[in-house]
Design a binder for these strands. Sequence first.
DNA 1: ACGGAATGTTCACCTTCGCTTAACACGACG
DNA 2: CGTCGTGTTAAGCGAAGGTGAACATTCCGT
Lengths: 228, 228
Amino acid sequence: MTSTISRKVLLVDDEEDILDLLRYNLEKEGIEVHSATNGGDALKLAKSERPDLVVLDIMMPGMDGVEVCNELRRTPGLEDTLIVFLTARTEDYSHIAGYEAGGDDYINKPVRPKVFVNKVQALLKRTRSGQAVSKVIEANGIRMDLERITVSTGNEMLQLPKKEFELLALLMSKPGKVFKREEIYAQIWGNDIFVGDRTIDVHIRKLREKIGDDRIGTVKGMGYKFEA
Amino acid sequence: MTSTISRKVLLVDDEEDILDLLRYNLEKEGIEVHSATNGGDALKLAKSERPDLVVLDIMMPGMDGVEVCNELRRTPGLEDTLIVFLTARTEDYSHIAGYEAGGDDYINKPVRPKVFVNKVQALLKRTRSGQAVSKVIEANGIRMDLERITVSTGNEMLQLPKKEFELLALLMSKPGKVFKREEIYAQIWGNDIFVGDRTIDVHIRKLREKIGDDRIGTVKGMGYKFEA
DNA sequence: ACGGAATGTTCACCTTCGCTTAACACGACG
DNA sequence: CGTCGTGTTAAGCGAAGGTGAACATTCCGT
């Protein structure tokens, strides 16, 4: 299902190798790629090319990714351009700064081409299919983006598998409310699919592993809840 | 036991077939049905017809179900109308958004007529017999949240075990009323499960331990009551 | 199309704690 | 003084949930 709609991406990174690598992988998918190695050029290109998506390295000499992002958000006609940050997966929290700056997504370095291409395509698809009304749920230090299917726990960004994500989203839709097992089954699996007793437990366990034990509570005989 | 009380339902879905299917099944049960194929009409009809229940498809072109729901919740006189979402269980997570928007229940597509009618009838029954099992009971300084399964005594928040919670909820449903032991058994254990004489006493004792001796009274030979 | 990884489900335990009961104590009342 | 209804306590049982691993399925890159 290769779309016929414009798919133009602007890559910005000071390392040429990375630029080449990403360019190669995107072009392979028939995506139009422009690139810049610094913030200034990036802005110029963005204005002239009007890409659908800008991939910004956060760490760059001179104007860094966050600044470029801010500038883009301020430029008439580019406010809504999708922006993805490339974040070095180090100790520092620059990706959080990026989040504040209003990026639409984040990709960790070192970049894995497949993951990268997937993400880009997913994001491009979004621009096409009507304005991304980003639905976000937030409670108790956890923030879920229903659209990007991501979860941030304050110090990191997670990609939960589908079922876990659905389960967490359900619990978080009404923090504090106890969801009976049946409710959970009905909502997540549907009324006609039946899975074993222990299935929910296992997903709950995995969630607790990932977001912390204290965030999901058990009420014996009644169900589970997200701690408010 | 076909009720004589008004049972009016508003169906909202952009697909006519579904509308017809649901309408047919509801009318067969003697329920008055109105329908709309878009959010705008739905709101108009809701205002003029004041249905007891609104069934909203989440995914609709133009104003979607969540928006309609929000609007209804904001409309004087309709804030408490029961709302049921029809959720397509697809890739996206709009059904969760719907949950968050404050629907009263959810039905998964594809709809199975029997399940649907049952749910609608159950919900309608609810409106008649006093507002939707009002989610909070309060009396004599004790407040029970039936949704969160918690009890607050003014100075602390408790998590009662299931049976104790149910027992307290029963007593508090009519403060002052004396519940005969048989009534209690019937309500909490059901008519076919039999437990020993001392079982209730023990639960009562634990409750008294936790919420204070003076809150539950004994009427010898008669039963127990929650002190008003 | 193939094969391996990621995700989802089930199974066979284990642990925990709520529920129930048995045994006894106590006061009221005949 | 006996029995009736209830209070109290501790102990056993069992159901509900937790856990780890096996098994099944889906996804995805080659």
